[in-house]
Design a protein around this nucleic acid. Sequence first.
DNA 1: TTTGACATTATCACCCATGTGAAGGTTTGA
DNA 2: TCAAACCTTCACATGGGTGATAATGTCAAA
Lengths: 131, 131
Amino acid sequence: MRIGELSRRTGVPTRMLRYYEEQGLIAPRRRENGYREYGEYLVDRVRKIRELLDSGIPTRIIGDMLPCLDDTSDTVIAEPDPELRALLVEQRDKMSERITVLEHNRDALDRYIVAMDRAERDVADGAVSTV
Amino acid sequence: MRIGELSRRTGVPTRMLRYYEEQGLIAPRRRENGYREYGEYLVDRVRKIRELLDSGIPTRIIGDMLPCLDDTSDTVIAEPDPELRALLVEQRDKMSERITVLEHNRDALDRYIVAMDRAERDVADGAVSTV
DNA sequence: TTTGACATTATCACCCATGTGAAGGTTTGA
DNA sequence: TCAAACCTTCACATGGGTGATAATGTCAAA
């Protein structure tokens, strides 16, 4: 498919799709006329890229990780690369840390919201105002 | 305490501490000589700022959220602000989404790492090489 | 009490990452 | 033929820092 269709199907502006290509995250083939030709699988790939960027993973890392993020559990690896392994372990652990921090703070936010609602309800019930 | 000590105790360069002040995240008082004077509680606060920034939360949002992130469960709110509530709910939900994405991808990474190790072990066991 | 090392101050400018806007040119397809 | 889709390229925006300079403050040893 061409860039416009991919853009429509992923919700990602064409401008950004070209940018991701520049960053080495996707590598569409070219038609004779110079137009980019995107394979079907790139729809999911682009969505995954957006998710990861939204979660704060930089493009450089995404580029290294993408080939390892297929959801199949029966991945077969021909030549295990120790350097790649180290990078993946590092990223996995960083992700775990982020998850911990986010959970912690989300829960704190949630408690605060509940407290706000409690206060609101108390006001509505005619409790003595603390303003 | 002065900026150098806070820097030592948090591991955050003085340059950054001044930057966070500029961004409105911390507001140390000043001594007569112009030096910044940091209260003890800012040690935790600066650590929390670092955590949140590392997790991809922008300073603007951190500034709004910080007062709501105390870990005490018995927070009392005098005048519940609906706008603030909306912002907090939005951020809480964004955090939940991020957590989901990060968990998903961390698990995928983890599976890949396990697969690599399995491949490595097979090689060591003298399995037929696929190189 | 002065000297010298070290901490702090402010300010200006610069870097990288992630986008975004706009100009100017080519290709497609009704 | 003409609009819409595509192409490249250059430039700008924002966020989060970082480096360098020059001036002042502190403190201890000579």
